[in-house]
Design a protein around this nucleic acid. Structure first.
Lengths: 156, 156
DNA sequence: GTAATATAGTCAACGTGGTTGACGAAATAG
DNA sequence: CTATTTCGTCAACCACGTTGACTATATTAC
């Protein structure tokens, strides 16, 4: 039961704060490793683009936003040097979106740092507690965890 | 240890998804109860305004944003009927920001729904698991959990 | 009491990220 | 060959953030 000493509204706040703590730690470390311009949202976009590359429309679908919004986001990541566009030889309408070497580097370092951060949590809380949090959350959240429309979702 | 079957990057995604699930459920219920226009960010603002009311500058400090940003947010909540401004009799520069009856209603209903949602989680996961998640997260996050600058933080 | 300083709120300009609607170019279906 | 669909882009707009400049009011210093 939610009780006066455990009111229901703190659970979402703590989940958000946990997320935020991990992301802040990630980006502090990424900034040290040569990626100071990478924003939290950018990592999600790079992950969605993936090693194989994709198109703006497809990216929009993966991120749960319009193709126009995805296109703008790609523009910014291109300007920062993390993505590049190329013509699709098989379809002149399409423009392939690919990661640059810098993009691959950022994504690879992010994975390493996330593993380190999870290890740090496991060292403090215990490995079984961290695994339990993951298992519990997986039971409570819908399958499509991988939604990136956070800014618009939160404010709208 | 983060392992290939438990890569580090899923923990932040699950924390975010858990937060998002709770907030989406909250707002689905609030919409049913007569508050369809309330956005996730609005609840945080109402909470920050508090029953006693505050001023735009103070609100900005509580939310970790500039006084201008806080003022704009108040404008929108005033337009939606959740907040109202009043002159401060003791200081002609100040404009007090207060909740309207509608604002109080929304905040009160939010608290009830959050308690219900936490109970639902406890019914599925077990009360001790939910309490453990809360306790673990409290150990890992810094004390100032109550930051509302999410949109700017995430995108920036 | 007056001059200097600090504070509250607002306006303007701008950046990021989202939306919808309209459009041309290219692929595909009939 | 024509009709339709799809891809990318442009334009206009909204939500939310920023900094800088400005007015009005308080407060502090002398």
């Amino acid at each position: 039961m939610a009780t006066p000493d455990r009111p229901g509204f703190v659970l979402p706040l703590l989940l958000l704060a946990g997320f935020r703590t991990l992301i802040d730690d990630l980006h502090a470390e990424l900034a040290r490793q040569g990626h100071p311009e990478l924003r939290p949202a950018h990592g999600f976009v790079l992950q969605a683009v993936g090693p194989a590359g994709t198109t703006a429309s497809d990216l929009g679908q993966r991120l749960g936003v319009s193709k126009q919004a995805a296109g703008k986001t790609v523009d910014r990541l291109v300007a920062l040097g993390y993505l590049e566009r190329a013509d699709d030889p098989a379809d002149a309408r399409r423009k392939l979106v690919r990661m640059t070497a810098k993009g691959h580097d950022g994504l690879r370092r992010s994975a390493v740092v996330f593993d380190d951060l999870r290890d740090r949590w496991a060292a403090i809380l215990g490995a079984e507690r961290v695994a339990a949090i993951e298992d519990d959350l997986r039971r409570m959240v819908p399958a499509d965890v991988f939604r990136l429309d956070v800014p618009g979702w939160f404010s709208g």
